[in-house]
Amino acid sequence: MSNQILWDCHMHSSFSADSDTSMEDMIREAICRGLTGICFTEHLDPDYPPTPDNEIFELDLDGYRETLFRLREKYQEELQIHFGIELGLQPHLNSYFHKLLKTMPFDFVIGSSHIVHGYDPYYKEYFKGREESACYREYFESILENLHAFSEMDVYGHIDYIVRYGPNQNKYYTYERYQDILDEILRTVIARGRGIELNTGGFHYGLGEPNPCRAVIRRYRELGGEIITVGADAHGPEKIAYDFDKAAAILADCGFKYYTVFQNRKPEFVKL
């Protein structure tokens, strides 16, 4: 079958605070689905604000690395397993992340915006008493703030993540409505030699679009963007490689002839 994506480069296991699935169960499911490879990208969100449900965002980084390396060896004949991280960016964390990336042998680093000026839009408090469009714009502005403070990631994660959680989700959201700021984000990413991801999480949130939406992906390509990874943002086995057939079709439609996989922080381009 053509247009097949066989690498899922954004997934979580119970090392992330918001997943309760063991790493081995995720690996077994990826093998069952016939994937060539996966990359775990556990959450590292230092200085995460207190949450309404008292979620503690901590990562046992050494335990994560040891478990992944052990399972990588165990399953090496069946699946390629890469060691990644999803950094929860905030401008004041730049030196912490800079030092971390010098010491850890990651294959792949996603930089994501989860916290906007002390709030995670995942929780309804962020939107309370405010215009949805103002909240969305503040989120996009915070991405630029993060990029100006720190740009050592390989790709910027789920650039319009916020529309998963807005009161109307993406009902009134379009690339055109926020084109000025989205173009600035894309140009900055490209100028710094970084990429973006096509995150199919938007499909399992019922948006009918990936994150970012296809119009943003098309614009990224028009502006000269070349590096694009694909991940389902799975926190459980049922979401691994979710709607990857749609992802492949979107990439092809937007002018991509390949997707990207990182190993030892270096991009490898895989034909669609």
Rank of each mutant, 00 (worst) to 15 (best):
L100A: 12
K239R: 15
E176I: 06
G195T: 06
I190L: 04
K266S: 11
R221S: 13
D180Y: 06
L6D: 13
G236N: 12
M26N: 09
D18I: 04
E226Y: 00
L79N: 08
N199G: 03
Y161F: 15
E268Y: 13
A232N: 08
I162V: 15
R192C: 08
N264Y: 05
R72I: 01
D233Q: 09
G88V: 01
Y122H: 14
I115N: 10
K257W: 00
A247Q: 04
P52W: 11
G63C: 11
W7C: 07
G236D: 11
L35E: 11
R28F: 01
M26F: 05
D8I: 02
C9Q: 15
C135L: 05
D62H: 07
S151A: 08
S22W: 01
D45C: 04
R177Q: 14
P212T: 09
E132G: 03
D183F: 03
A191G: 06
V163L: 05
A241T: 07
L101N: 07
H12Q: 10
T21Q: 09
E145S: 14
N211P: 00
D20Q: 14
A234T: 07
A134W: 00
F108A: 10
G157V: 07
G208E: 05
G201M: 03
C213E: 08
D8N: 12
L147Q: 10
T41S: 15
Q80M: 10
E238K: 15
E55W: 09
R219K: 15
T229C: 13
S14R: 05
K128F: 00
F256S: 07
H12A: 10
H10G: 12
H12P: 03
P50D: 15
I228V: 15
G201L: 02
T51C: 11
E209G: 00
P52C: 13
F69V: 04
Q76N: 12
L207E: 09
E42P: 03
A248G: 14
D45E: 11
R70E: 13
L223T: 12
E58P: 00
G88H: 04
I5R: 08
G34I: 07
P46I: 01
T51D: 14
G88M: 05
S19E: 12
S113F: 01
F57M: 13
E66G: 02
A247V: 04
L89D: 01
H43M: 08
S2I: 12
A241E: 12
D160V: 06
E197R: 05
G225R: 11
R219T: 01
A248Y: 02
H114D: 01
M23L: 06
D8F: 08
F83K: 03
L59F: 09
Y172K: 06
D107H: 13
S95Y: 06
A191M: 05
Y173A: 09
Q80L: 13
G118H: 02
S13K: 06
I31L: 00
I27L: 03
D243V: 00
F127H: 03
E24G: 02
Y175T: 02
D183C: 15
R192H: 12
L87A: 14
K266T: 13
I250Y: 13
G63E: 10
I227Q: 03
P91I: 04
S14C: 11
L100C: 09
E125I: 13
